[in-house]
Amino acid sequence: MDDATGLLTAFASPEFDLLAVTTVGGNVSAGKTARNARILRQIAGREDVPVFVGAERPLKREPAGAGEFHGAEGLGDLEPFEPAAPLGEGAAAEAIVRLAMERPAGTVALAVMGPMTNLALAMRAEPRLAAHLGPVVVMGGARSEGGNITASAEFNIWADPDAAAEVFASGCRMIVMGLDATHQVRATEDRIAAIEALETESARTAAAMLRFSQRIERVIVGWDAGPLHDPCTVAWLLKPELFDLAPCRIAVETDSDLTRGHTAVEFRVDAATAKHFWATKADAAGVFALITERLGAGR
């Protein structure tokens, strides 16, 4: 649900030169996420942006979904359909390498809204990629808030901790939107209603998904206003001033079943050489104002 809102916001933001959308197995299977990205692309009227299908499974683990939070098809109440435009040719990891390496270093940013399997595979294929990328903005991890899939792990990292560990160790510059920040960005009744009041197809789609999430969060978690996680990556790329960041070093637990996917966030680092930056504070009103403005201007 929140990934979809993030994608629709990105599609409606003219500042972005969107090179591609790459999909991965996560909350639902890789086949469904690839179809869903194409559905959202069609709703947004952005068939100019290629969609590449990504990894079907984690590097070393069995796939683990979260359909109970997002619906069996990963679309909430939205009825799936076969989009008109096809997938791009080739795998997501190949596309990431090609699109980034054919452009000047530091000019291609990635917003990662799911497990990091594709990015880890791309870095294995092209060892120069980590140093070549612009910032990699990740939704994943947890520290003071605790986990949302286990006591200490957030789902996106937990789903493929081995891929996350490789990417965090790669040396690329990473902006990390963990639960400490995304739990501050709540989809309150007023904020959902403001998006529902818009007349674009993108806004109607996002609002319907936010309503679905609101119902699910009330039943499963007991929250009236659930957090909006993944769009924080897009919001940071558009307006980084909406977030406070702290330089740090992040490592991921891969060996323990008890703490699989735990993100160890160490703030005792040299700020001048830090590669990881942990979001500590989010301007929730500003994030929702940005999303609402973009969805209202979209298709």
Rank of each mutant, 00 (worst) to 15 (best):
G26T: 03
A235H: 02
G114N: 10
A297T: 11
V51Y: 09
D257F: 13
F243T: 03
G6S: 11
D2A: 07
R249Y: 03
G74Y: 01
D17H: 13
V53T: 12
E241V: 01
A55W: 06
D48R: 09
R218L: 14
A111V: 15
A159M: 06
F212M: 12
G71H: 06
M123V: 04
T205H: 03
R61I: 02
E15F: 01
V221K: 01
G67V: 09
K60N: 13
P14T: 14
G134N: 11
L295T: 10
L129Q: 02
A10L: 14
F212E: 06
R38W: 01
D255F: 12
A251G: 15
G146I: 07
D283T: 10
Q42W: 11
W236Q: 05
A10I: 07
E15H: 06
R186I: 03
L295K: 05
E47Q: 14
T280Q: 13
A100W: 06
A64R: 08
A142V: 10
A84N: 09
A235P: 02
A284Q: 02
T259K: 14
P104V: 08
A30H: 04
P63W: 08
V221L: 04
D230N: 15
H229S: 15
D48I: 13
V219D: 10
D77V: 14
E126F: 00
G71F: 00
E199P: 03
V49K: 00
P240F: 13
I43S: 08
A151Y: 07
T188A: 05
A163Q: 04
A264T: 13
V265N: 03
D257Y: 10
E154I: 10
A130C: 06
R57T: 08
G171P: 11
P115N: 05
E154F: 08
E266W: 11
G26D: 10
A34M: 02
N156I: 11
G261N: 08
R103I: 10
E73R: 12
P161T: 00
E73N: 15
A207W: 03
A235K: 01
L179V: 01
G171Q: 06
E217F: 01
D162W: 05
I216N: 03
T254W: 10
S144M: 13
D162I: 05
P63F: 06
T263E: 09
A289Q: 07
L198C: 13
H262N: 11
G74P: 09
A66F: 04
V24K: 08
L210C: 07
E62S: 15
G298Y: 09
A109F: 04
D160G: 08
I157D: 03
R186A: 04
G298A: 15
L78F: 11
A274T: 15
T150K: 06
A37R: 00
D257T: 14
C172R: 00
E293F: 13
V287G: 00
M123W: 05
S213Y: 09
A93W: 02
I96F: 04
D244Q: 15
R41I: 02
W158K: 05
E15M: 08
P231A: 10
G106I: 09
Q214C: 05
R41L: 06
T117Y: 01
T23K: 00
R103P: 12
K239G: 03
A30D: 08
R38I: 08
F69S: 07
A181D: 03
G65V: 08
S29C: 07
S144N: 14
R46D: 13
G45V: 13
V287C: 05
L198R: 05
D244V: 15
H132I: 09
